[in-house]
Design a protein around this nucleic acid. Structure first.
Ligand SMILES: [Mn+2]
Ligand SMILES: [Mn+2]
Ligand SMILES: [Zn+2]
Ligand SMILES: [Zn+2]
Lengths: 138, 138
DNA sequence: CATAACTTTGCAACAGAGTTGCAAATATTT
DNA sequence: AAATATTTGCAACTCTGTTGCAAAGTTATG
């Protein structure tokens, strides 16, 4: 496990540091997407807030994590499982937010359907977020 | 026009005040969705920041405006054109964000396609945001 | 494996976003 | 017009996010 994380950092040309390892571990051991605040809580007293911001930014650029837009001004982050890389994300799956337990999860197997846009509009990227009740809260 | 706005407030059981009228006017005269900050700028020096927050909150609850989730932590707000009311929104259309001019618009005519969720998940509400190039920026 | 070169981190200081309580002002009801 | 109810502005505060810079840590090199 520790090796997996090291390799992951290496293959992305990132130096191996305590905070990067810890934050990746948090993502691997979490069963949902995380907001910046969640990560801060879980690294609590270990790293500076600023380091968390910078680490998330770096992971985002490298295609290690992707964002999930929200209507509560708290972007969630989750590991990319698709073939994302530096500068190109391909996370075209639906995200689900449970109104019960508030978990945010990647539905890797549910692809975002394409839509027909009005004349003149060109799509580059789409996001779909479904709110509802998750299988555990039913 | 001024009458339309007054009626709109009345029919929602809201008292008619300067800030509510002004903020509604701003929405009617804008051709895209607005973030809290945009509204603040356009009411500049006229109302307190806090009043803008409270007014948006009220409009949201009454079903006068709806939110558009974003990945930049700046929720956009737009007028509801569907049959939304106190406590129930029905804005099931796609939203488009232009990467050129950054406008955020409601594509009222593009309905969000439904998706098949994994067993056990129940959808209550869905959001779809498409990023790309708008017809004016092409 | 020691040193040099490079990268990341923590800290401090700051700017901006959002919240709350309360008294004054404004709107509605009678 | 007065009484009642609602909304607003202000002050004070908390939380979120950003930047510059020196110190600490990581990687590359011989
Ligand atoms: Mn995802
Ligand atoms: Mn809309
Ligand atoms: Zn749940
Ligand atoms: Zn545009």
């Amino acid at each position: 496990m520790d090796n997996l994380i090291d390799d992951m950092l290496k293959s992305n040309n990132l130096s191996i540091t305590g905070s990067r390892k810890k934050i990746l571990e948090i993502f691997f051991s979490s069963n949902g997407a995380l907001a910046h605040g969640d990560i801060e809580k879980r690294t609590s007293e270990k790293f500076d807030r600023v380091t968390v911001y910078r680490t998330l930014q770096t992971f985002l650029e490298k295609g290690i994590i992707h964002t999930i837009p929200t209507a509560d001004n708290a972007i969630r982050y989750a590991l990319c499982k698709d073939s994302c890389g530096e500068g190109h994300h391909h996370d075209n799956h639906v995200h689900f937010i449970c109104s019960g337990c508030n978990i945010t999860i990647c539905l890797e197997d549910v692809l975002i359907p394409s839509v027909r846009l009005p004349f003149g509009f060109v799509a580059e990227e789409q996001q779909m977020v479904v709110k509802g009740v998750c299988k555990d809260c039913k």
